[in-house]
Design a protein around this nucleic acid. Structure first.
Length: 218
DNA sequence: GACCAGGCACATC
DNA sequence: GATGTGCATGGT
C-alpha cells in the first residue's frame, strides 16, 4: 500500500503542484476556518471569516495573535450574524465558543506544550462538542503542524475508486492506513490532503470520475 | 427547483 | 454497531 499511496501522491503533486494549505494567516484563523467549513463550501466560509476579521474576532495583526477571549465573551447573536453566510450558524456559534474555551485552556499564553504528541492532544480536542475527527485532524495538522492525516468524503471516495479500499471503511481505519504507510511527515500529510481536495473539485466530484481524472491510469 | 458543499451530535433500533 | 435526522447558507 505504501507504493500505491506514494504513486497517487506523486501523480497528483506532479499534476497540480504544491497547494500550500491551509488558507489562513494564523493558527487561530485556521481553527475557525476548519469549524466553519464543516459540510459547507469554502467560498461561503470566506465571507464569514471576512466578517469575523472586521469585528476583530480574528486578528489581522501579530499584536493580538488570538481572539479566543473576545469570542468567548461575545453574545451568541453577534457571532451568529457574522458567520451566517457559512450556514449552520447557530450550531457553529456554539462550536466556536466551545472551541474558544478549549483554546484558552490549552493554547493561549503558551499553554500548548512545546512538543505535544498527537496521542495527548487529539482526545482532548475531540472531547469538544462540535469538533469531530475531520475537524480535529485539520486543526492538529494545519494549525499545530502535528502529523495526523485528515480523512474527508473526497478521500474516502477517491481511495475506494483508485486503491480499492472498502467503501464502508471507518474514519480511524482509513486514517491509520495512510499514517502507517507513509513517512510521518506533517508537510507530506498537508499536501496530500489538499491535493485530494483539488482532484475532487476538478475532476472526481461526481460518483464517477470523468475522463479527465488524473488518476485514471493508477 | 434540485443538488451539493473540505461534518457532527443525537435519537433510535 | 448501523441508520436516520436536524442543522442552513449560497452557488451551479
Amino acid at each position: 500500500m505504501t507504493d500505491k499511496l506514494l504513486a497517487i501522491y506523486n501523480t497528483l503533486y506532479k499534476h497540480y503542484g504544491p497547494q500550500y494549505w491551509w488558507p489562513g494567516e494564523s493558527p487561530w484563523e485556521i481553527c475557525v476556518g476548519a469549524i466553519l467549513t464543516q459540510n459547507t463550501n469554502w467560498r461561503n466560509v470566506e465571507k464569514a471569516i471576512i466578517n469575523l476579521k472586521k469585528s476583530n474576532f480574528i486578528s489581522t495583526t501579530s499584536k493580538t495573535p488570538d481572539c479566543s477571549i473576545r469570542l468567548l465573551n461575545a453574545d451568541n447573536s453577534v457571532i451568529e450574524k457574522l458567520i451566517r453566510p457559512s450556514g449552520y450558524y447557530r450550531m457553529k456559534t456554539k462550536t466556536l465558543k466551545n472551541f474558544a474555551l478549549w483554546w484558552s485552556n490549552n493554547v493561549s499564553e503558551q499553554k500548548l506544550k512545546e512538543n505535544p504528541t498527537i496521542n495527548e492532544i487529539r482526545p482532548s480536542l475531540l472531547s469538544v462538542n462540535g469538533i469531530g475527527p475531520e475537524t480535529a485532524d485539520s486543526i492538529l495538522l494545519y494549525a499545530f503542524n502535528l502529523p495526523t492525516f485528515v480523512i474527508d468524503a473526497y478521500t474516502k471516495r477517491i481511495m475506494t475508486r483508485h486503491a480499492q479500499t472498502d467503501l464502508n471503511i471507518k474514519y480511524n481505519d482509513l486514517r491509520e492506513l495512510f499514517m502507517k504507510n507513509l513517512p510521518n511527515n506533517p508537510n507530506l500529510f498537508k499536501e496530500f490532503h489538499a491535493l485530494f481536495v483539488q482532484l475532487a473539485k476538478e475532476s472526481c466530484l461526481k460518483n464517477k470520475c470523468t475522463h479527465s481524472c488524473v488518476l485514471r491510469c493508477l
